[in-house]
């Protein structure tokens, strides 16, 4: 396997990026307005900017999901964690006089604690990840409704407006947040031993334990990180319009996040974490959504169109297709020589 790695690394990394570029180029040819970016009122304006802005919550959740999937786990609870932490943040803003910083810290901490509960269930109690996190996926929205008393909570907060739609150096604040989180995660995962340990836990938990890695602790850490990411996404989502709509907040986001990880080439069998490519995966999903919204497709076809394109992308990236292409190239070369 290791020998093949050198050969297969290129298509694996370029696959998602080329898919994204291809989708944008094709759409740009059909509708040039889609790729036009203007600068007006001190901000960049265009469909592609919308894609970046709208993709941030999914991208942030997908980062946490990538780490969890790297440990051979899965976190189905993220959509509900988004709702719970969005509810916590909204209630703290409307019902208390806490500073914005404390609201943020408490909301993110709530996500971290929920993640820790998932992590304890998975790594210390030994419940299968899909079941352990399913519990919260199902019950989490109810918890969020309990927090707000079942209603939507609207709030006025300058700091939240800045997170939701503010600009810094003509670029939306939420893009800075996502980029900062990506950099931080890459630093921790690639420049410290933590990333290596987490991947080794996912590849072979028993072997990792034999070489002295505290496998269970690292697994739990992955779920804590995923919880915090989901909490951050929740805060960004409620900041968008200034309302925490608990019944719909973060609905189905866990599936988009898992899809982003898979589009990035991550295997659900764990062992590999592709952080940058996961962001590309989230961007592919959002690009498709934005294209569907602006293309006038009847609503009944939204999901069919999206699923078909994603299936095509996955087919292009699949090892079988890659091998077939390689075979073709070899044959062509063989003919030439």
């Amino acid at each position: 396997m290791m020998n093949l790695k050198g050969l297969s690394i290129n298509p694996k990394i370029w696959g998602p990026i080329l898919s994204l570029v291809a989708i944008i180029v094709i759409m740009g040819i059909i509708d040039p307005g889609f790729v036009r970016i203007e600068f007006k009122d001190g901000r960049f304006y265009g469909s592609l900017i919308d894609v970046l802005v709208r993709a941030t919550p999914t991208a942030i959740i997908a980062l946490g999901m990538a780490v969890v999937i790297g440990t051979r786990g899965i976190d189905l609870s993220v959509g509900s964690v988004v709702a719970i932490c969005g509810a916590v943040a909204a209630m703290l803003i409307t019902e208390t006089d806490l500073s914005f910083a404390s609201v943020m810290v408490l909301s993110l901490a709530a996500g971290g604690v929920i993640g820790m509960l998932n992590g304890i269930m998975v790594s210390y109690i030994g419940i299968q990840p899909i079941i352990a996190t399913l519990i919260l996926m199902v019950s989490g929205r109810g918890i969020a409704q309990l927090i707000t008393g079942g209603r939507s909570v609207s709030f006025d907060s300058v700091a939240m407006d800045i997170i939701g739609s503010g600009m810094f150096l003509a670029i939306p604040v939420r893009i800075w947040i996502a980029a900062g989180l990506l950099l931080l995660t890459i630093l921790v995962m690639r420049k410290t031993a933590i990333g290596l340990f987490i991947e080794s836990v996912g590849a072979n938990a028993r072997a990792s334990r034999y070489v002295g890695i505290e496998a269970r602790l690292f697994k739990m850490f992955a779920y804590v990180f995923s919880g915090i990411c989901a909490a951050l996404a929740g805060v960004i989502l409620i900041a968008d319009v200034g309302i925490a709509e608990i019944n719909r907040l973060g609905l189905w986001l866990e599936l988009d996040a898992i899809l982003a990880v898979v589009l990035a080439g991550g295997s659900l069998n764990g062992g590999r974490i592709y952080l940058g490519l996961t962001i590309i995966g989230a961007l592919i999903i959002q690009t498709l959504t934005t294209i569907i919204f602006s293309s006038g497709v009847p609503v009944e076809y939204n999901l069919i169109v999206k699923a078909s394109i994603i299936l095509a992308v996955l087919l292009v990236q699949s090892p079988t297709t890659q091998a077939a292409i390689k075979d073709l190239n070899m044959k062509r070369k063989g003919v030439r020589t």
Binding site: R248, F293, S295
Partner: peptide
């Protein structure tokens, strides 16, 4: 002239309206 689902939510409504304003 255009019709899309905003899935009953304000975020959904905002996102769809953004793309209408551009397209």
């Amino acid at each position: 002239i255009a019709s899309q689902t905003g899935s009953w939510s304000s975020t959904g409504g905002k996102e769809v309206m953004e793309s209408f304003l551009k397209s």
